[in-house]
């Protein structure tokens, strides 16, 4: 596993890259054991582009689309949750497996714990209510406002959806305009269309 570094003071290069990768993995493991892995993340390829998935000890904190800026998402996590942020580790295995199954059309709901500490107040009520919109169906902003207890707050529901810290897992993509058009989406209109189409096929197929 360790490359041969027989000489002190060699210029580094590919050998060192591998050593540093191994050392990084070891650091993530020992941080987890020492209770210092406050936030861990990975970036995965999906049909809606590269997704950043980040989790704390209590659950998934963030799912971010490429267009939202992964760097910005990590900086927000560091500032608002903890700067002890490292990439990798086993903690994300369950959620990444469920996302794989979802994108393969083999999963309709997510079982992993979600930590909504990045969102507060009414917005939090809205995103927490999103799983009531079933897989393969859609609801209007007004309908979701009703479920969240404020039928007249359709506009605020739109904002809450746009700021959903864990899109895909909490399905804001199922909230559409009353006229039936998909409406805006944090991951871009194309991503919203892809997810809705995926679920339509999942229901009929």
């Amino acid at each position: 596993m360790t490359t041969q570094i027989t000489e002190r003071g060699t210029g580094g290069g590919a050998g060192d890259d591998r050593v540093l990768r191994d050392l990084h993995a070891r650091l993530v493991d020992s941080a987890q054991t020492a209770g210092l892995l406050d936030v861990t993340y990975r970036v995965v390829d999906t049909p809606v582009g590269r997704l950043l998935v980040a989790a704390g000890e209590r659950g998934v904190l963030r799912v971010a689309f490429d267009v939202q800026g992964h760097e910005a998402a990590l900086e927000e996590l560091a500032a608002r949750v903890s700067p002890r942020v490292l990439e990798g580790g086993r903690r994300l295995d369950p959620v990444l497996r469920e996302l794989d199954e979802y994108f393969a059309g083999a999963r309709r709901a997510f079982d992993v714990a979600v930590d909504l500490r990045l969102v507060a107040g009414f917005r939090r009520q809205v995103v927490a209510a999103l799983p009531t919109v079933a897989y393969g169906t859609t609801a209007s902003y007004t309908e979701v406002a009703g479920v969240a207890g404020s039928p007249r707050a359709a506009r605020a529901v739109g904002t809450a959806c746009a700021r959903n810290p864990v899109p895909v897992l909490l399905p804001c993509h199922r909230v559409v305009c009353a006229g039936g058009s998909p409406g805006r989406y944090a991951g871009g209109a194309a991503a919203k269309g892809t997810l809705l189409e995926l679920e339509r096929r999942g229901v009929t197929g």
Binding site: L23, E75, P83
Partner: peptide, 16 residues
Amino acid sequence: TEPFEDVVRVHGGTVL
């Protein structure tokens, strides 16, 4: 308040 991951990436080689 900077993510620690950046610190490891930038300074890992020097520390080694």
